[in-house]
Structures are given as C-alpha cells and as structure tokens.
Computed example of a mutant assay.
Amino acid sequence: MRTKDLAQAALLVAIAMILRSLTPPIFLGMKPDLTLTMMFIILIVKRDFKLGFLVALATAIFTALTTTFPGGQIANIVDKLLTFLIVYNLIPLFSKFLQKRVLAGVTTIVGTIISGSIFLTIASMLVGLPAPFTALFIGVVLPAAVVNTIAAAVLFTVVDFAIDVEYNQVESEVL
C-alpha cells in the first residue's frame, strides 16, 4: 500500500462523510449510507485488501459516531467490516463479467443490501428494531440501495477519471 493510495482513500472517505451528513433521512430517521458507496468504489479502483480494510474500519468508526439509529454504533462497526469482507471477495467474481462502471453499480446495490441486512440483524439482536425487519428492509435498505447505486454511477466516473488522470500524469513524468 502506497502513501498516495492511503491519502486518496482518506480524501474519498472524507468526501463520503460530508455527503452522508447532507443526505436527508428516508424512513424513521434512517438514511442511505453514501460512505458504503465510496468504500465500494475504493475497493474497485484500488483492489488492495489492506487499504480496503482501513477504509472499512474508518467508515465503520465514522458511521458509528454519526448514526441516528438508537444503539447503532456496534451494528455499524460489525456491518461495515463484514460487508467489506464479503464484497471484497465478490468484486473479482463480478469483474470477470462486467465493465468497471457497471461493476460499480452492481457491487453497490448488492453490497448495500448485504450491509443493510447485516446492520438490521445486528441491531435487532442488540437493541431491537423500531419497526419490523421486513418494513425496514423494504422502506430503508432497498431505497438506500437505489440511491447508493445512482450515486455510485456518478461518483465512480469522477473518481476513476481523477485517479486515471493522475496515474497517467505520473507515468508520463517518469518516462
């Protein structure tokens, strides 16, 4: 893992946290988690397990600190780390069949559904849910997956272009 990759990932996580703070709630005070979107984009672009783990850990801590869900701190930490492990292993499978931009969308929708399911399961075991699991899944997780996927399509294009431009600049300077 290079320092440049770490700095880029930190910047992207910071941008995701700003977007998270600006996102309005959907249902019962819960809102889409755009930090997940950025985590998936970083995993696709960088393909580095250690960097991905650090991004997942940072995302877990930040979302735990800013959650509006009662008792959602532990659920956020467990959710982000488990989601990272699952999605990191799915990306190579998906990438065999999909172009990068489509990969970002598919990874985000699948990853958000996985994340939401894990979060609701952990939260229900620890503190209970303010509504039935199915209602929260349909009312929060599925809309969040759609919002995150749309955001991923836009953000992936920008992030991939910016990193590719920087990479090509460095390549030409070395030559």
Rank of each mutant, 00 (worst) to 15 (best):
L82C: 07
I86N: 10
M17E: 09
T108A: 11
V78Q: 02
Y88A: 02
R101W: 06
I44W: 01
V154P: 06
T112R: 09
L36D: 01
G111V: 06
P70I: 10
P132S: 15
R2Y: 08
I163Q: 09
M1K: 13
A64Y: 03
I113H: 12
L98V: 11
N76A: 12
A153R: 03
P70F: 08
T107M: 10
N76D: 11
T121D: 07
V154K: 06
L65P: 07
S124P: 09
L120Y: 09
N89H: 13
V140T: 02
N76V: 02
E171Q: 14
L6M: 03
K46W: 04
F84A: 01
G128W: 07
K4L: 12
G111F: 03
G29E: 07
T112Q: 11
E173H: 08
M125G: 15
G29D: 04
T37V: 06
I138S: 12
F84G: 01
F27E: 02
L34T: 02
T23R: 05
L54Q: 14
K80E: 00
V78I: 05
A58K: 05
P143Y: 12
V87E: 04
L142Y: 05
G111M: 08
P32L: 06
V55L: 10
Q169G: 09
L81I: 08
I150Y: 05
F27K: 12
L175K: 13
P32V: 02
V140F: 04
I44P: 01
I150F: 05
G128Y: 08
D164S: 14
T3H: 10
G111Q: 09
M125K: 15
P130Y: 12
I163E: 04
I114P: 13
V141N: 00
L43M: 15
L136P: 01
G116S: 14
V13M: 03
D160G: 10
F119K: 07
M1A: 14
L57T: 14
A10D: 04
V140K: 01
I86V: 15
F161Q: 11
M30F: 13
D164R: 12
Q73N: 14
N148S: 10
K31F: 05
K100W: 07
T3K: 15
F161D: 10
M39G: 00
P70Y: 04
F49G: 09
F94T: 02
A14W: 04
L19S: 06
V87L: 06
V154I: 15
P70E: 08
T157V: 09
K96F: 05
T37Y: 00
F161E: 15
V102M: 10
F156S: 07
G29C: 14
N168Y: 09
V165Y: 13
I15V: 15
I61A: 11
L155C: 09
K96H: 11
L155K: 03
F137N: 02
F156A: 08
L54H: 15
P24Y: 00
I150K: 06
A10K: 00
D33I: 00
K80V: 01
G116I: 11
D5M: 08
T3W: 08
R47K: 15
L93S: 06
A145Q: 04
